[in-house]
Design a protein around this nucleic acid. Structure first.
Lengths: 103, 103
DNA sequence: CGTCGTTATATCGGCTTCCGATACAAAAGT
DNA sequence: ACTTTTGTATCGGAAGCCGATATAACGACG
């Protein structure tokens, strides 16, 4: 009977998905996250490339047609990915609301 | 140079700490969390008792002087625990703000 | 032209955490 | 008497994070 319906995103995955509303390559994602969080979160390479693979497997991001530039591989979020982030945002709002109600 | 200063709480730990602003025993924590989240989060026994032990080790909760009632063991949050939850709430607010800015 | 820092992707191993399953047992309800 | 609820606890598998490590192309500077 353990329901626990929704998916819970980790901080890294959440920010990676947010970064990919515009096409971006791996290294660019790292920089964007650092910028978005004013340097508070620096996603390590191990986390990033591992997460990219699982996100591709789940269809939450896809490889973006890169300008045959070689080295860089660009990715973008999918519609499914957008739905997942939106739901995660809802969950986060609930966490904040519950925290504010008590503290 | 990977800083990543702050502590990140898992959903389970966050809610356990919120539950313990008033003394409560393990089973009561499970029920309170279920109630707080309208049944969306049901913390399993494995998660709960594992988390209680690590929280005790870290000094974020302490065992509360139970009325020698036997079976039940009550716990409460410590000042350190309160500080941790407060910081987590800040982090969650940042996640929400960043999500809202993009979606 | 050589060297150094940055950009860039990728894998591995260790650690922590979550959670379902399982076990045990007292209390309460029917 | 029996069943459900209350209550605590452990185990093992799976997932995720991250530091370390490896590899290599690119640009800048002397």
């Amino acid at each position: 009977m353990g329901e626990n319906t929704g998916i819970v995103l980790t901080e890294a995955v959440y920010y990676i998905l947010l970064s990919l509303t515009k096409p971006l390559h791996g290294y660019g994602i790292m920089q964007k996250i650092e910028e978005m969080t004013d340097g508070r979160l620096i996603v390590s390479a191990g986390t990033l490339y591992g997460a990219i693979n699982t996100l591709l497997d789940r269809g939450w991001i896809v490889q973006h047609a890169t300008a045959e530039d070689s080295r860089r591989k660009e990715y973008v979020i999918t519609d499914e990915g957008r739905t997942v982030v939106a739901k995660e945002l809802e969950r986060l709002r609930e966490l904040v609301a519950n925290g504010e109600a008590i503290l």
